[in-house]
Design a protein around this nucleic acid. Sequence first.
DNA 1: CATTCATATGCACCTAGAGGAATATGAGGG
DNA 2: CCCTCATATTCCTCTAGGTGCATATGAATG
Lengths: 135, 135
Amino acid sequence: MSQDVFEVIADGTRRRILDLLRSGERPVGELVDLLGVSQPSVSKHLKVLDRAALVRVRVDGPRRHYSVDPAALAEVEAWLAPFRELWADRLDALEHHLDGLESRDAREDARQDERAPSGQTAGDTRHTPCERAER
Amino acid sequence: MSQDVFEVIADGTRRRILDLLRSGERPVGELVDLLGVSQPSVSKHLKVLDRAALVRVRVDGPRRHYSVDPAALAEVEAWLAPFRELWADRLDALEHHLDGLESRDAREDARQDERAPSGQTAGDTRHTPCERAER
DNA sequence: CATTCATATGCACCTAGAGGAATATGAGGG
DNA sequence: CCCTCATATTCCTCTAGGTGCATATGAATG
């Protein structure tokens, strides 16, 4: 069952629904039009979102206006927060690193970074270069 | 293929791996012990995390020490940010007439009737930070 | 009441992906 | 060289879940 918030927002369609609802409540049909997926699919996504308490419904005659309830996203926020700090630290360390080291060959190292139990020394650790460390 | 960060962090085991790596780099075997899942499974999760650039590897002899790279979480952060503002707004409004309701039922209206004149259409609001298809 | 509109639900199909067992790979140490 | 340890990869199975179609529900309207 999709009751975990992380699984709920894992789906792109559901994220788009939430994005659309950010600008105000909308009836289902409007979402169907904007999303370009079938109405049953939208309804099912809304049901999942509702079970996760991410949306609310306002019944207006035959129509149901959905609005976003971002409170449940606090769980994601809470999980993310420690990484944000870590991210800041890393950026800091990276800036320090970039400060004086740019053209030095990082080959002959094998430095102190051998067994640090919880030191998390920002060792070289190469990886496929991506776009990391954006500001 | 799991390359979307949201799908990557949707898995609880992977989130636990990231949590564990927050306190410092660890070899795979340690993660296996701490997580209580099979080693192949851990390796596969690490591969997924690596493809999403959420972890880095430091090769040390036969061992591979993984560390977390929180930069890729910026996408989640970016998606989350507007909801955080919305959340604050809601909290504000809630505090205003805080009469002791806390049930989240379909009983809400008349807060801000902004209907986003030309707000976002069905346009896609995501950007892949990098798309490499190595291997 | 019957009709119609808006939405929800059931059914069937299909793909992704999580998990474990077995095996391959690769680096050091005798 | 072979052996062993640490990890990666392959193969397989199984289930969750996303999708569309058809249909049910339920409210307003005449």
